[in-house]
């Protein structure tokens, strides 16, 4: 004999039935959206030739050949690499700092909870425009404007970083908890005091986090800027490739890898200090 099973609530209460029905519709809509997204990616991949299989025929042998030619790495010319390495480092550090200095006020003006829309909209548009121009294009422009060397690299990285950090800064400011600021306002603290004692302690760890991320990104970007004449270790790598000095190129790439790793470790420590440690009001 079958035990009596309780009647499902949906059969009893039309309100529950309506809620469940709405949930099913939402699920179907999400599934449809995911399928459309997947189809779009596949179509774009076909358009870009990602499924053009004959073109993959010589890929592996060529890579193996290049790797063979690049081994062992040739460090014999290391005394000449100090200056380019310092150029790359200075480009990344100064470019990030300059970018941050411009990005903070622009980000504050772009934040929807701070500036009125008539001011915020054009600033957001300007940040989008700055961000959408690739670093290499900024590099070409500044090489033409101020000549070769690390300076156009610094300006190019600062420009692109302004766009990125400005957007991050605006988003961070938009997510600030308003309650502590209201508590300060309720006790007569000035707007500057609210900014200093409530907003700054809340945004500082995240701002440090995104700035460190941007610095790591800029270190790699500074290398590619060497291609357009902005100097640094990138120029040395490109020159080595052009002269078919693959062993020297691999040594330079290993050096860059070491530098990036050191920066990553340093950045990780700073990040832990600011994000996980106690902030100071």
């Amino acid at each position: 004999m079958q035990p009596n099973r309780p009647t499902p609530l949906r059969d009893v209460d039309p309100a529950i039935e309506a809620v469940l029905c709405c949930g099913h519709q939402q699920h179907r809509r999400r599934l449809l959206l995911a399928s459309l997204l997947a189809c779009t990616v596949v179509l774009l991949a076909v358009f870009g030739g990602a499924f053009d299989l004959p073109r993959y025929r010589d890929t592996l042998p060529t890579i193996v050949q290049l790797l063979g030619d690049a081994c062992p790495p040739d460090f014999s010319r290391w005394p000449r690499w100090g200056r380019p390495l310092l150029d790359t480092l200075s480009m990344s550090v100064v470019g990030t700092c300059f970018g941050l200095i411009v990005a903070i006020p622009l980000g504050a003006l772009a934040a929807r909870n701070i500036a009125p829309s008539w001011l915020g909209s054009p600033v957001r548009l300007a940040l989008n425009a700055i961000r959408s121009i690739p670093g290499l294009v900024w590099g070409i422009m500044f090489v033409a404007a101020v000549g070769f060397g690390p300076l156009p690299g610094i300006l190019a990285l600062a420009s692109h970083s302004t766009g990125m950090l400005g957007k991050f800064c605006a988003e961070i400011l938009e997510h600030v908890d308003a309650a502590p600021g209201n508590a300060l306002r309720a006790q007569g603290v000035s707007p500057l005091g609210v900014l200093r004692f409530s907003v700054l302690p809340q945004i500082l760890p995240r701002l440090v986090d995104v700035t460190l991320y941007r610095w790591e990104h800029n270190l790699r970007a500074a290398t590619t800027l060497g291609v357009v004449g902005a100097g640094g270790i990138g120029l040395e790598i490109v020159t080595a490739f052009h002269l078919f000095e693959y062993q020297e190129a691999s040594a330079l790439i290993l050096l860059l890898l070491g530098l990036v790793s050191v920066i990553n470790v340093l950045g990780g420590r700073l990040r832990r200090h600011f994000v996980d440690g106690l902030a100071q009001p």
């Binding site: 908890d177 502590p180 508590a183 300060l184 006790q187 007569g188 603290v189 000035s190 500057l192 005091g193 900014l195 200093r196 004692f197 409530s198 302690p201 809340q202 760890p205 106690l278 902030a279 100071q280 009001p281």
Partner: peptide
Amino acid sequence: IDRISALDNVLLGLADRRHPL
């Protein structure tokens, strides 16, 4: 403010007695 200590949160009650800068 979640990220700062209990003591610092209490100090914020006295924020109007300290110059913001």
